[in-house]
Amino acid sequence: MLPDSAFDKEGFLRELDDWSPAVAEQLAAAEGIALGAAHWEVIELLRDYYRQFESSPAMRPLVKYCALKLGPDKGKSIYLMSLFPGSPAKLGSKIAGLPKPDNCL
């Protein structure tokens, strides 16, 4: 478990290198989400996105990237909303240990 000081006031990880699957569980628990296989698939996808583009996606590119990598059934905002309710790009990025997306609604 990381101490509270490892997170900013919105709950995002301050040091991206501190991330681990256990930290993801901790971040998800703080949001009331129990991570299943479908969550992990999107978490890995978000981390791939960050490695490729050095930025966290807004909603629109996240949906498009999911469609490209996971297929059209999962490249839908309603699917992502079911995993990370409210604001999937923001919440998913947070749990995946990425910076807050710049252009998040």
Partner: peptide, 15 residues
């Protein structure tokens, strides 16, 4: 800071 080109490469995903 981040690689400008890498962020540019994400533009197609933004339409």
């Amino acid at each position: 800071t981040r690689s400008h080109r890498r962020v540019l490469d994400s533009l197609p995903l933004y339409g």
